[in-house]
Amino acid sequence: MAKIVVIASGKGGVGKTTTSAAVATGLAMRGHKTVVIDFDIGLRNLDLIMGCERRVVYDFVNVINGESNLNQALIKDKRIEELFILPASQTRDKEALTQEGVEIVLTELKQRFDFIVCDSPAGIEHGAIMAMYFADEAIIVTNPEVSSVRDSDRIIGMLASKTYRAEHNMTPIKEHLLITRYAPKRVNSGEMLSAEDVQEILAIPLLGVIPESTSVLQASNAGIPVTLDKESDAGQAYLDVVARFLGENRPHRFMTSFKKNFLTRLFGN
């Protein structure tokens, strides 16, 4: 049975699109047929992060409006088998995403894929609600920073009230917390919320922690999902996240800084 997974956060710039690309790629690397959909109508960016921006001809809204069929709009990734991208429209306004239209497209995708990853736009408006509405599971991307944590809590509230599962009294959406841009060193010195603190405030299970890493910008510069950079800490952290999402037991990594030597312990950093 296909699973619809929304990547949400409320606040912008915390790493939703990076996470959508990395998780979708990771799932496909594990052999699952996966499609990742950009719900940010008017501000398409997933295509850039996935490195397929020059191959976009038709988009999500074209499919909803019947201007193209799904096969014409789906872009097959050239690196990973079983990975497809459905880009957002760059020109339309976001009201173009009707609930009926989204439902028809998702129903068709469910016949063909194991995982449908929905990259939500920032905010709590129509586009964000459409991205989460039909979800079975949600990955809440949060930075260890006050405004991001508060906005994540808003999104968690919306998952419990404004979605298909909530409105039809079904089993609630399964929520996962993903903390990104984590700097263990700053956590140790008391200037950044710890993963435990964030998890305690939001009270949903911790799926993983992605360390602040230069490899994330380098990956987006090149249009390569960071999961494909297996040498990088962020890439490895995302691979762990995908494994845990699939039900494997993997210990958390990248949550502590390197052991301090005697001199730094004495004099500080």
Partner: peptide, 19 residues
């Protein structure tokens, strides 16, 4: 006080209120 502790306390209050 460490700023992270201040952040946690502020968040706990505002999140509980908004919930």
């Amino acid at each position: 006080r460490k700023t992270a502790d201040v952040a946690k306390e502020r968040l706990q209050i505002i999140v509980a209120h908004e919930r």
